[in-house]
């Protein structure tokens, strides 16, 4: 099988060091299409591939049946042996040239129009709502893994990988950006699908600001920068299962979100606030966000409905 895969997919370039290993751009020699190859090295014992890997990859495959316009296509999966202790699972995704980071960088001077931002947000939330209803969370949403095609279509990438990696990841120290992490992850509390909504909120703000919203350089610094804007949460909202105490932070009051995102309109500011809510249980869901008046007040480009 290893042989067959390396023949079918011919590496063209390395396209990123990702948190979970190297990603290659490759050409599918059968179709001529470009693909993105992501390999996960999984620890295997004498009982073969771990149950968690089998189930998670199977779930990603299942999502393929729905052919959702806002998630990246998973075209092929392959398991090859590396050693008795390690199996390589290669995921072959459709390749999209541009991510949201470069898309934002390339936007000319005043930045993206409010209509464009609204359309991007709508597509992003559609993709997210789809993943969440299928019980898949992204957990590492950031501009780098939100792809934007040349037609302006948003496609989420790298979702569901976090779970595949986390259990059996090789023990290499990795630098992961903290900027889009929600408080519950920074505090190492339990978390679920609301994590992605926090990240989406950060990205929403970034589309207006053209620079990241919270740029911390450590967990505590990141939390400090967050509380600087959303205020220190009340004692009763502070998770009980964490080691970091609330007393480590100064008692700050929330600032109006328009202080940090002046370009946003009223409805947008209201939605952003609901996304950047400290308590994950009170944070808005992807489905409810799509129902928010921000998306309904005027006609929006509806590329998702094509």
């Amino acid at each position: 099988m290893a042989h067959a895969t390396s023949i079918q997919y011919e590496p063209v370039a390395e396209i990123g060091g990702g948190a979970y290993g190297t990603v290659y751009k490759a050409r599918d020699t059968e179709s001529g299409q470009f693909v993105a190859l992501k390999s996960v090295r999984v620890q295997t014992d004498q009982n073969g591939l771990p149950v968690s890997t089998v189930r998670e990859v199977a779930l990603l495959r299942r999502l393929e049946q729905f052919d959702h316009p806002n998630v990246v296509r998973l075209m092929d999966v392959c398991a090859t042996k590396r050693s008795d202790q390690e199996t390589k699972v290669t995921l072959v995704f459709e390749h999209v040239d541009q991510d949201l980071k470069t898309y934002l960088e390339r936007a000319p001077a005043p930045g993206l129009s409010p209509e464009r931002i609204k359309d991007l947000m709508k597509q992003l939330l559609c993709g997210l709502a789809f993943l969440h209803t299928n019980r898949v969370m992204h957990r590492d949403l950031k501009p780098e893994n939100i792809l934007v095609t040349s037609q302006g279509q948003v496609k989420l990438a790298d979702f569901g990988l976090a779970r595949i990696y986390s259990c059996h990841m090789a023990l290499t120290p990795v630098v992961v950006t903290l900027w889009y992490r929600p408080p519950e992850v920074l505090l190492q509390s339990s978390y679920a699908t609301p994590v992605d909504i926090w990240s989406t909120g950060c990205i929403f703000a970034e589309m207006f600001r053209r620079k990241p919203l919270f740029c911390g350089d450590s967990e505590v610094d990141q939390l400090g920068k967050i509380f600087d804007v959303v205020g220190l949460p009340p004692e009763e909202e502070w998770p009980t299962d964490v080691t970091l105490s609330r007393k480590n932070f100064p008692p700050l009051l929330p600032r109006p979100i328009t202080d940090v995102v002046p370009e946003i309109n009223g409805q947008g500011a209201q939605l952003l606030q609901k996304m950047l809510t400290f308590d994950p249980l009170k944070r808005i869901s992807a489905l409810n966000a799509l129902e928010h008046p921000y998306f309904q007040d005027e006609e929006t480009l509806t590329q998702t409905k094509s």
């Binding site: 099988m1 073969g48 591939l49 089998v54 990859v57 199977a58 990603l60 495959r61 299942r62 393929e64 092929d76 999966v77 392959c78 398991a79 090859t80 042996k81 199996t87």
Partner: peptide, 10 residues
């Protein structure tokens, strides 16, 4: 590995 690959984990 062979079966999972051929079935593409579906």
């Amino acid at each position: 590995r062979k079966v999972l690959s051929v079935l593409k984990f579906d």
